[in-house]
Amino acid sequence: MRETPTRQRLIIDFEKCCGCFACAAACPEKRIAFSDQGTERRFSAPGVCSGECETCRKVCPVDAIVLEPFPLEDDECHPPALTWTLPLVRCRRCGEPFTTEKIRRMTMEKLTMLLEAPDAVSDWVPVCLACRRIEEAHRVRTATRTLPDPLR
């Protein structure tokens, strides 16, 4: 790899970060990582990176990333690596954590604003993907009265 002429410092606004994985997917050097542990999503990112690209800043849907030029020589005050966590939210139906609290709230707000059926939004957003499919199957079968009684 080519030696990078400049470096840049990552400044992440943990308050803004919603916990999506756009930056992690975008980073060409794969230096931003995330993993779900229990009811938390843990992120880690370097304090300083090579400094050529701005991909992570561009993809961030909530503009939580700021990049600042960082003097090449300044090894003395090397900013520490960044780690932060966001709480996950549990599915209303099965209780498994499936996305972050913030993403759920954002989705809820956005859909309530944009769709013509604001009440319906709260039917599915608090439910995980697998349970949404089951609920949908149940709705379809109930609506068409094709749910049989158990055998006797």
Partner: peptide, 17 residues
């Protein structure tokens, strides 16, 4: 696409990953 994954959370039927 930036792969942020918000669409999957929005899909009412859980059929988008």
């Amino acid at each position: 696409c930036t792969r942020c994954g918000l669409c999957a959370v929005a899909c009412p039927f859980g059929v988008l990953f």
